[in-house]
């Protein structure tokens, strides 16, 4: 049984269909790139898996359970937008996460804070975008979860910070976990994926092992992505 099993998933906002009869299985022990143009349903899918959206049609199973308050214990989710309050400092955020999640590893979080050269007493509202993204990543990766869902973890940061974030993901990834990383910045990130899932119009366009796709097409995942979605500039 796959760690995540999705079958015939449909989700619409009003009359707009965001996920259209999506079926997808994801196995443990993998870093999966969830790739698709803006508005293709990546964030909605991650929110459903994180148990934040419960109104949908179809079947979604995480380790055999419907996503709800209980599966949140095994899922560590990094949302696209921050939910941390501006007054908080990293040390407060660590307290908060430590209270909330039994699997939060404070020592690991403090290690990562040093790795990123962040100050544990600096208030979030005075942090740059890159610093905030690093802090969010720390909070998510410092949990010993079975599923990590990262929604654009390096959306607004410079290439140096992007490399540091990638290093941190690799360094803190546990072999038996499943990591799903949604992004549209493919080129810089694709070497850490072992599997790519291309999503378009809420449907599965392509799923495969990255090295196998490279061999088959003689192209990078980034180029395959551009080719698949070339005719859809209006998205």
């Amino acid at each position: 049984m796959a760690l995540i099993e999705i079958s015939n998933l449909n989700k619409s906002y009003g009359s707009k269909l965001v996920l259209n009869d999506l079926s997808l299985n994801l196995e443990a022990g993998r870093i999966v790139g969830l790739l698709g143009p803006n508005g293709c349903g990546k964030s909605t899918l991650l929110k459903i898996l994180a148990g934040l959206i419960s109104a949908y049609d179809g079947a979604v199973l995480l380790d055999g359970h419907k996503p709800d308050i209980h599966t949140r214990a095994i899922v560590s989710y990094l949302p696209e937008r921050t939910y941390l309050s501006g007054w908080m400092r990293p040390v407060d955020a660590f307290d908060y996460f430590g209270d909330f999640y039994g699997d939060f590893d404070r020592v690991k979080a403090e290690d990562m804070l040093r790795f990123f050269n962040l100050d544990q007493k600096q208030q979030i509202k005075t942090m740059s975008k890159g610093m905030k993204e690093k802090l969010q990543l720390i909070l998510v990766m410092a949990r010993r979860a079975r599923v990590y869902l990262l929604d654009e973890p390096m959306g607004g940061v410079d290439p140096a910070a992007r490399s540091a974030i990638l290093d941190a993901v690799l360094k803190n990834y546990q072999d038996d976990a499943l990591m799903v990383l949604a992004t549209h910045l493919i080129y810089d990130v694709e070497k850490i994926f072992d599997e790519a899932v291309l999503l378009g119009f809420g449907q599965l366009v392509m799923q495969g092992e990255t090295d196998q796709l490279r061999q088959q097409y003689g192209k990078s995942i980034d180029e395959i992505f551009r080719e698949v979605f070339r005719c859809s500039v209006s998205w």
């Binding site: 993998r30 870093i31 290093d167 690799l170 072999d175 850490i192 072992d194």
Partner: peptide
């Protein structure tokens, strides 16, 4: 595998392979 994956910045399963 983990050390090599980190050193070369690639997926651990790719190193394993």
């Amino acid at each position: 595998v983990r050390e090599l994956a980190l050193e070369f910045g690639v997926n651990p399963n790719t190193v394993q392979r």
